[in-house]
């Protein structure tokens, strides 16, 4: 089954996260936490001339939150900040199940689409993205996706 394939990809990112660890120094960072389920993600960025040169994360929580953070760092690396905001919107659409399979590009987008099958868990996948966007916008207080 196709979704099993993407579940496997999510598990790989969970077991061996990419771009993992604190970045010090960095140009911006933020800490996101969903207090009800306890998922935590810290996102660190080095932004140079409006380009996301390096994005790393660390955290603790369920497989979906941590894998989503790892996959996110892969997707946004070397991206223009303005393009990142567009991608943020797009990931939100994918997690809401608003895009057809044919409209998705790349295995990581398909992996996010697999998470959309669990509506109660999409908040876990959105947490690192919201934390990243808040870091870039300089908002670092009370970042959570539980009431979105």
């Amino acid at each position: 089954m196709e979704s099993d394939l993407y579940q496997q990809l999510i598990m790989n990112h969970y077991r061996e996260p990419h771009n993992h660890g604190k970045l010090d120094p960095c140009t911006c960072h933020a800490f996101g936490k969903n207090p009800l389920c306890g998922d935590e993600v810290s996102v660190y960025c080095i932004v140079d001339q409006n380009i996301l040169k390096t994005v790393q994360f660390e955290g603790a929580g369920c497989a979906i939150s941590q894998a989503a953070a790892s996959m996110m760092t892969e997707m946004v690396s070397q991206m223009q900040v303005d393009d990142l905001y567009d991608l943020y919107e797009r990931i939100d659409q994918i997690l809401k199940g608003e895009l057809e399979s044919g409209e998705l590009s790349g295995e990581l987008e398909h992996a996010y689409a697999a998470i959309a099958q669990f509506p109660m868990r999409t908040k876990c996948a959105r947490l690192p993205w919201k934390t990243l966007v808040n870091a870039l916008q300089g908002k670092t207080e009370n970042i959570s996706t539980e009431n979105d």
Partner: peptide, 8 residues
């Protein structure tokens, strides 16, 4: 294994 993953 996180409890939420168990639940799902």
């Amino acid at each position: 294994v996180h409890a939420h993953d168990v639940g799902s």
